[in-house]
Amino acid sequence: MEVSMTVNGSPRTDSVEPRLLLVHYLREVAGLTGTNIGCDTSSCGACTVLVDGESVKSCTMLALQADGAEITTIEGLADGDELHPMQEAFREHHGLQCGYCTPGMVMAAVSLLKEIPDPTEAQVREGLEGNLCRCTGYHNIVQAILAAAKAPARAAS
């Protein structure tokens, strides 16, 4: 079936099998492999992307369900060579090690700050309940998000 959506600002139309998951569409059809797959039970959040500006686990959505939507993946976050403030904060605070959960974690964090622009530590931690990281122990991820919230350039934008 035909599906059309805007991915990182570029409209595209493709023919897909109905069962094709959004994450596979993004990775294999659109060639955007930055969005990772870490589980098969909607548990880990590695595949988090923004659908119409909100965080969604792209492994739990059919590509067809995104018809007409605006999708932002990790590849669409930076502005040219300039990292998005959230990416910058993750780097500054060593909020990543192996980097596999990172794209999903960053997208979840961007969505979180849209909803709660100035969160407490507890709100950040609860807001990340759907994203698992095995390397960092979350300490520096939380620090990065708290710092991004304070950054002059709005990290949620």
């Binding site: 990772n36 797959i37 993946t73 990292l83 990416q87 990543l96 192996c98 980097g99």
Partner: peptide
């Protein structure tokens, strides 16, 4: 020192086997 590994990992440019 901030890690040099990070920019590629933070932007989705890094390539894992599945990529």
């Amino acid at each position: 020192l901030r890690r040099r590994e990070d920019p590629a990992l933070l932007t989705g440019e890094a390539r894992f086997v599945a990529d």
